[in-house]
Amino acid sequence: MRLQYSTMERMTGAFILLTLLIFLFTVAVVGRGKNWFRKHVVFYTTFEEGYNLVSGSRVKLLGTDVGSVVEVSLSENNQARVKIRVLADYAPRIRTNSVATVESPTVIGSEYINIIPGTPYAPSIPPEGEIPTKEKKKLMEYLEEYEVGEKLENIGKILEDLAKIIGTIEAGEGSLGRLVKSDEAHRQLVDDLEAIDRFVATLQQTADHLARAGAKIEEGSIHVEKATREAPEMVDKVQELLDRLLRVNALMEKAMTEVPEISTQAREGMREVNLILESVKENFLIRPNLPPSPESESHGLEIRGN
């Protein structure tokens, strides 16, 4: 036997094997989802009619999927005999006092068999056994159950009352009737409505003013906010100015103590200058050329209080 294989042979083999594996995996996954590989137990039920049950219709236990319908056939006494298969795990819960009914999520269509389990003390139905049934309600029974007739009667009464009210209004009776039928009341209503219109216009204006005021407040608040932001800096600057002023004040105080001495020295100097001037005036060369002497005026350098 040749045991050396070419790349093509190996790849082709791998390809086919992989396909088989994927196919088997798919079948396994689908089968698991569909309960193909779980054990089932067969039961029978008999209904007065088939209720559109078909092979593959669901079988539920308390609303949970537990199996499916295998076959629907007519028995000799003209009843629908339904063969169902139920998952073996749930089969013991179907007891002699369990009841199978045909239900559907809508009033008509998608029928399924719903089994209501019996009491735990009742014996289980053996495989291939018959599950007791309860017939599916017909449309008329549903109508009776929901008291549709009575409800229709109530609706009729309501309609009659409505007709009466409309008649009263048409006749101009009652507040609404008068309002509808009287011209004066109608004019009054129109006037009132116009007054309301004016009031609404005024309200509108006020609202505009308020809006503008609000805008200004908003603008002011921006400034305030700005000032608030700048306040610490301004305080610092004021503090600095005060410091400078204090320093200037101290210098002024010091200068004031020196002022009397300076004024004494100035007075002495002025006196000497006066003496010199007097001497110059006396000179014969200058005296004829001198203008007339001015009136005397205080120059403020005299000693206060003199």
Binding site: T26, V30, W36
Partner: peptide, 14 residues
């Protein structure tokens, strides 16, 4: 989605 698909795919599809 995988479990939904496993439920939706039927034997007939295969």
């Amino acid at each position: 989605l995988f479990s939904d698909l496993a439920r939706e795919v039927d034997g007939i599809d295969i």
